[in-house]
Simulated assay, not measured.
Amino acid sequence: MNYQNILIAKEHNIATIIINRPDKLNALNKVTIQELHHAFSVLETHHDVRAIIISGSGEKAFVAGADIAEFAEFSVEEGIQLSAQGQETLFNFVENLRVPVIAAINGFALGGGLELAMACHIRVASDNAKMGLPEVSLGVIPGYGGTQRLPQLIGKGRALEMILSAAMISAEEGYRVGLVNHITKPDELLDFCYEIAQKIIKNSPAAIAMAIHAVNANFREGENGYETEIKSFGKCFGTVDFKEGTKAFLEKRKAVFTGE
């Protein structure tokens, strides 16, 4: 597929996706959401891709929100469909991806941009990043999972203050409240994320996928996370990776994992 709005590169089992709409501060429109879905879908099937980094082009923004012009005239039903399709196509899809995704937040991450970062498994921000969910200032609420994931990450009270005030917070504040894992200088951001990815790809892809599934289970309605962990733990024993990992440990050598 030829992409209009994203760029993809692969190196040493790590893929990098760059949202490439710098003139729009990398805002998410329908085309970009569909392209991201396709890219993540394809990369997940590539056995040589064991971690994915996503960032925005330019120096100003990761993603500065959704493309408001696309939905300014929507009806109630169209709004419901927009939110439901977006969550299924991209945000929930990324959260449940078998391959770990690292958000490299380079500048503004607002509205749908912060929601995309929160759907990723790990978040790293440059020290000039600004993050927020300003939707109520437009007469709407976050619709791509923001009202759910932000409280999960930083707590209900802080999340409500951010959402209801439509305020932006700095990278430092984001780190303090647990919204981002690390802060770096802008010119070190991608390299830092790459270092995290390199640590991840040394481990079993099969076990990593199971771990993501088990952690996410704690936040699913009606699902017992402990039960999911027990079943996922057991499934690991049937994988080639488990046999290789334990054998390598006993033989005092580095394991060579295949993800099987």
Rank of each mutant, 00 (worst) to 15 (best):
M118A: 06
E73T: 12
L133W: 04
F108P: 02
C120E: 06
G112D: 07
S126T: 06
V99W: 00
Q81C: 06
V140I: 14
I141D: 12
Q85V: 11
E88A: 13
S83F: 03
F108I: 08
V76I: 11
L133S: 10
L110N: 05
V140A: 12
V94C: 04
G139R: 08
V94G: 00
E73K: 11
N106Y: 04
G107C: 00
L82T: 01
K130C: 09
E88C: 09
A69V: 05
V76S: 10
G112K: 11
A109L: 05
M118I: 08
F93G: 00
L110M: 15
L114F: 12
G113M: 09
A104G: 01
V140G: 06
F74D: 14
P100Q: 00
L110P: 03
F91I: 02
F71Q: 01
P142Q: 05
S126F: 07
A104T: 03
S126V: 04
A104I: 06
S137I: 14
D67W: 12
L114I: 08
P134T: 11
L138E: 13
I68Y: 08
E135W: 07
V76L: 07
I122Q: 11
L110T: 15
N106M: 01
F71P: 00
V140L: 14
A72C: 13
A104N: 07
G79C: 07
L90M: 09
L116E: 00
G79Q: 03
M131E: 05
L133V: 09
D67C: 11
Q85N: 11
L90F: 05
N92Q: 11
S75E: 00
V94I: 15
D127A: 14
E77Y: 00
R123N: 07
L97S: 15
F74S: 13
M131D: 06
V140M: 14
E77C: 02
A84I: 02
F71T: 03
E88F: 07
S126I: 03
K130T: 05
A72V: 15
M118N: 05
V94Y: 00
L138N: 08
I122W: 14
G86L: 01
N106T: 04
I68E: 08
V99G: 00
L138M: 13
M131Y: 08
T89C: 11
L138W: 12
F71C: 04
G79E: 09
M118K: 10
I105Y: 09
E78I: 02
I80E: 02
A103W: 04
A84C: 04
M131P: 13
T89W: 12
A125W: 04
V101C: 14
G107E: 01
L90R: 01
G112R: 12
A72D: 08
P100Y: 02
G113L: 10
E135V: 06
T89P: 01
E135N: 15
L133G: 00
V101D: 01
G79N: 10
N96Q: 07
Q85Y: 03
D127T: 09
D127H: 13
A103G: 04
A103D: 01
